[in-house]
Design a protein around this nucleic acid. Structure first.
Length: 110
DNA sequence: TTTATGACCTGAG
DNA sequence: ACTCAGGCCATAA
């Protein structure tokens, strides 16, 4: 999904690989949003697709999917264990139950 | 082909 | 601070 790829060139398989690659590099204790991942892959507008990819990622992949949250810091609906996993890593939460994005967001380095 | 469906996002109110 | 509508886009039905 390198720079400015047109919709017609979209390749689900490749997109999924690139998403997983980014997720695998999220540091412990930090989080990133679906939309940010999409932008990192030069595919703005594909935030929903990022979620779709993660949904189908098998446990055996051992990816830190719990570190991906919405731009507002909301957790995955229905995934009860996510909060505990994040708290274990020291991810800060707000009173409203969302991740404190201002402190926990991961800005890709380099 | 058309409609419905999300692990989404942003701007308004 | 919180909800909502409108926009988003590949997939499944």
């Amino acid at each position: 999904m390198r720079h400015g790829r047109a919709k017609a060139d979209y390749d689900a398989e490749r997109f999924a690989e690139e998403v997983c690659d980014v997720v695998s590099r999220i540091p412990r204790g930090r989080v990133i949003s679906y939309g940010t991942i999409a932008r990192l892959l030069c595919a703005p507008g594909y935030a929903r697709r990022v979620g779709g990819v993660l949904k189908s990622v098998p446990e055996t992949a051992h990816l830190p999917c719990h570190r991906v949250v919405s731009a507002a810091g909301r957790l995955v609906p229905g995934w009860e264990a996510q909060r505990r996993l994040l708290e274990t890593e020291g991810v800060p939460f707000l009173d409203n139950g969302c991740v404190d994005m201002r402190r926990a967001i991961w800005e890709e380095v380099r």
